[in-house]
Amino acid sequence: MNNCYRIVSFSIVIALMLAMLPLPDWAQAFRPDWVAMVLIYWVMALPQQVGVTFAWVSGLLLDVTLGSILGQHAIGLVLVSFLVLLQYKRIRVFSLFQQSIVVFILLIFKQIIVLWVSGIVGQEAETWSYFLPSLIGAMIWPWVFTLLRNIRRQNTRTSQM
């Protein structure tokens, strides 16, 4: 149980570091939302342990990391993980391709919430490339999924998760 939280937190920390990793200017628009993707995986795999509260805390950390308004990404991640919690049984049995589509919709949903908040505050981005991260995220989802599943299975073998 404890071990499970350790793995989940560790992967979120890695995702946060990927979110602040310096990229060349042209590549910044392509950076997928690592935290959201990792969170979607864990909520889907361990809905009893990882839920909306965990998503909210990760969102706050992401807000501080990105320098956005406190709560902006938190609200997005809470709602995304809520959607996953409602449908996790269905998403689990999807093929990887179908899962990618679901992840794409979830990531777009989160970006729209974030964009909506930015719009209210008056800092909206005006280009369609704003939604590129969701597309990239959906495209690399199969690899993220496989990687995280392997990590989870290895840990299940050594201890009860």
Binding site: G51, G71, A74, I75, F82
Partner: peptide
């Protein structure tokens, strides 16, 4: 879960 989501969303809005 629904109650928790409502609380957390409210909290986020308050924070923002």
């Amino acid at each position: 879960v629904t109650l928790r989501v409502i609380i957390l969303v409210g909290l986020s809005v308050a924070l923002m």
